[in-house]
Computed example of a mutant assay.
Amino acid sequence: MLDLTKLARQMQGLSEHLTSEATASRQRLELAQQHLQRAYECQQELIDNQEKWRDRILFANATPIEPLETRITIPVPPKVHTVVSTDGSQIAPNHHEIAYCYLLNFGRVVLHYGQNLHPLLDSLPEVFYRPEDLYVSRKWGIRTEEWMSYCRTSSETTVLAELACSVKSDVPILAMVDGSLIYWFLEQLPMDARDRILPPILSAWEQMREAKIPIMGYLSASRNVEAMNFLRLLACPHPAPDCVTHCPNQLEYVPCKIFESLRDTSLWVSQLQPGQRGPLWRSNARILDLYGEQIVYFCYVHVGTEIARIELPAWVVEDSTMFDHALGLMLAQVQKGYGYPVAIAEAHNQAVVKGGDKTRFFALLERQMIKAGIKNVGTSYKEARKRGSIA
């Protein structure tokens, strides 16, 4: 139980710390705005340096493929369209439960606008209990709980592609996912493990490309700094941005880290008006080397309530009509959802496994085990004791 009386004594120190951080953040923002203005005049020179020294730069940075002063008002979407989204949730394996297994639940949403069609809102559960599902990750040193989340990410995209391509319609369709299309966690995985996660995702993308259905990653409250790091090339005091030679230890003081802890969204909120997008960027994340031709681009959009990071594969960006329709449908979704895309929110609501659902799942499993003749079915004493209290 949380003792609020003891906690209140620490609040004063926390508030003072946050006040000083806010002041420092404003100063970093002013400095970043100055560097952005300077970068307008030498953008191509910075890009040339970035390309020339890319193997020597030790921080993640993106490349602007449009002028940095780009401010484009997102076009109004067509009234007749369809939006598809999926999201996932899970019940993690627990040795103290009646059986060691896990469940993935995928929320599926199809919303039709201007077509007089019923929406689809349901979920697709899947139980994993075989040894090859539970213990395959052990040989790579990956815990089952972590592997479960990686598999969920891959399956979410597969389910999304199947769902989007099953919609028989000649109207614009947008497939949306919550979060990034750049799967950073793959960097820490062995190659054999990556080969089980990434190929199904890229295959699903290819399926949607052939069906001419754009896929979009929507990031709310993004913490990315790839665009800010492009400005670090301008702030570098050395003749060339050769981090390996001049600043090999990025954890120590680095002269170009004058924007440290300043996110991309902090800069673009001062640059964009509601309904506008900034320049398009190409991500240079090293993990994208495994994506082949499926390079990921992104832009920042003022959706009215916040600055959202929008990520799209190359084949969406290269089709200007598809790109404009995708952004327009995204903005309409945010407006319909009062600040957050309604399709993504509903997919989450369909996917989430609540406490009562978990209890019913294990109750159903218990009945099946008893029916199969298994004896001594029940939770561990530890789990049973934690569910009740004598205090």
Rank of each mutant, 00 (worst) to 15 (best):
L181M: 12
I47Y: 01
V177W: 01
A391K: 13
D3K: 08
L202N: 05
Y129K: 01
P77K: 04
A227H: 05
M330C: 15
D324M: 12
M322Y: 14
L272E: 08
K354A: 03
I374V: 15
Y102M: 04
D319P: 09
A92C: 07
D3M: 06
I374T: 03
K257G: 06
W147F: 09
F259R: 03
D87K: 11
Q43V: 03
Q271F: 12
L288V: 11
A363I: 04
E210D: 13
E145M: 04
V171S: 01
L46C: 09
V159I: 15
A221I: 02
W53A: 03
M369N: 02
F59D: 00
P214M: 07
A240H: 12
N229R: 14
L14I: 11
S25L: 15
L117N: 08
Q44S: 10
R38F: 00
M1D: 14
Y113A: 05
M11Q: 04
L329M: 15
V136C: 09
Y102N: 01
G275Y: 09
F230T: 03
L219R: 04
C247V: 08
I307V: 14
T19E: 11
L58Y: 03
G378R: 06
R26D: 14
A39T: 07
S180V: 10
L120C: 10
M148A: 00
Q271P: 06
A363E: 10
S389V: 15
N349D: 08
L7P: 02
E346D: 05
E156Y: 04
C247P: 06
Q43A: 02
L219V: 14
D170N: 11
A204S: 04
G107M: 07
T82N: 06
H112P: 12
T19G: 08
M228P: 08
L233G: 05
H118T: 07
E21H: 09
L120G: 06
A60N: 15
I197S: 03
L117G: 00
L202T: 10
A343L: 01
L29T: 12
L331N: 03
L2D: 01
D122H: 07
L120W: 02
V136R: 01
A62K: 10
S169P: 03
A161I: 06
C42Q: 10
D264Y: 09
